[in-house]
Write a protein that binds this DNA or RNA. Structure first.
Lengths: 240, 240
DNA sequence: CGACGAATTGATCTCGGTCAACTTTGGTGG
DNA sequence: CCACCAAAGTTGACCGAGATCAATTCGTCG
């Protein structure tokens, strides 16, 4: 079975045998990385591109006042584009959340492969657009949603993404995020995240137990999140 | 002189004569669009891709509760990628802010051109990555910056972007955004935007007069915004 | 067992939102 | 050229969602 990166790209456009073996070659050097290791740090010169084959990672930025903002979660199959030499230095860091398996693709190599494999090029471009959509959704959440809506929305997003890559088993999936991490992703304080989670738990919408998120009532959760009805149903159905 | 779109792509990688004439052909059908016209609406099927050649546009989303979140500003040269058929329907709308000149590139046509022009492909990909960086910066602002920092940061961003495309004249540049629009971009209320602008005005950092933003003290503004010192200096210098 | 990080809960505070009035600006038509 | 109108800007009074501060409790791992 092809790895998570290949599977993700395949979902964005058909790849031929030749494309797949190229990707296989690119990711052959995958290594295991322990939890909470920085793959690259803010200020570093953008180096290689990383691909998460297994486990979770996150992009984050530490502000001058010491607070942290997580800007994206990277699930298996996700690639960390590093501005491919456009920028002089990284404006944020990338770190594993839990133990992960990540492949490293030397800068320039990916571009060369894309030049020779239009299918890969196209799939990467589309993956990029999808990521952008996720970023926009985060901005909407942070700007105009209440804290409970924000939490619910992030959970819906993660649930959807997890289910697309086959990480949902039964009613739940592994959520290796502390309340501190959630707070830093949602622009809230850990204390308030805790209270909101309690709310969601007592209203039987969802629950996090020992690193596993359980969505007891997906419809209720999506309604709290303010998911567009149509959007929700289409996606939730196709996901299952 | 090539149009703003071509100039922007050139800044991301060299284009040959052949590439440029292809782009010229793509944007030959540019038309004038009055202010506040929707180019495409949430729920529409993603159609063509739009390129702003002159004027301002914005991406925004209206939430179920009626509030609006602006997710990006599009300046001359910026393209509105529309998920190229990945998504069944738009999850946000795109609208002109002021009278603008926009070219329409049929869906599929851009992909075909990119397949035949690797230089364009590469430049588009890099432009995409840059846009993503901007989105991440917005998330950081909304999550972890105070209202005055947020306002100052957005102003720094717009100033930088305007200066890169030659829109800064003397100490200021045209800012066709009402306080309502700023509020919707920053996740604040118009009332509070007004107060923050007053603050910035009385501390002589910056000022908006009749649609023109004047940065009296760029260093002070950047300090308020929490711009990374190095980042600031490098960029601000290269911009002038 | 001991210890440290994370989760939980209560008390209190504050930044920014809400509500409401009034002023300024810019555009339109008589 | 001015009267009028709508939209945007401005200001004050008050409120509340979420932050802050602080104290336990819980879980896990050496």
């Amino acid at each position: 079975m092809p790895n998570a990166f290949i599977r993700k790209l395949q979902s964005f456009g058909s790849l031929v045998e030749n494309d797949i073996s190229a990707l296989q070659g690119l990711t052959a050097n995958a290594r295991n990385v322990p939890a909470r290791s920085d793959l690259i740090r803010e200020g570093d010169r953008p180096g290689p591109m990383f691909v998460v084959l297994d486990g979770w990672a996150q992009r984050y930025k530490i502000l001058p006042n010491g607070t942290r903002q997580i800007v994206a979660f990277l699930l298996p199959g996700d690639a960390c584009d590093l501005h491919v030499g456009t920028l002089a230095e990284m404006d944020h860091s990338i770190q594993t959340v839990k133990a992960a398996r990540v492949a490293t693709i030397g800068s320039g190599i990916m571009e060369r492969v894309m030049d020779h494999h239009p299918n890969i090029q196209r799939a990467m471009y589309r993956a990029q657009l999808t990521d952008e959509g996720t970023l926009r959704a985060w901005i909407v959440s942070m700007g105009r949603r209440s804290s409970i809506e924000r939490v619910a929305h992030l959970m819906c997003e993660l649930y959807l993404r997890a289910s697309r890559i086959g990480l949902v088993h039964g009613e739940g999936f592994e959520l290796p995020l502390s309340q501190i991490a959630l707070a830093d992703a949602l622009g809230m304080t850990p204390v308030h995240v805790n209270r909101v989670l309690k709310d969601l738990r007592t209203t039987n919408a969802m629950e996090v137990r020992r690193g596993t998120m359980i969505i007891a009532n997906p419809v209720a959760l999506a309604q709290i999140a303010g998911f567009d009805e149509n959007y929700l149903h289409r996606r939730m159905r196709q996901a299952n």
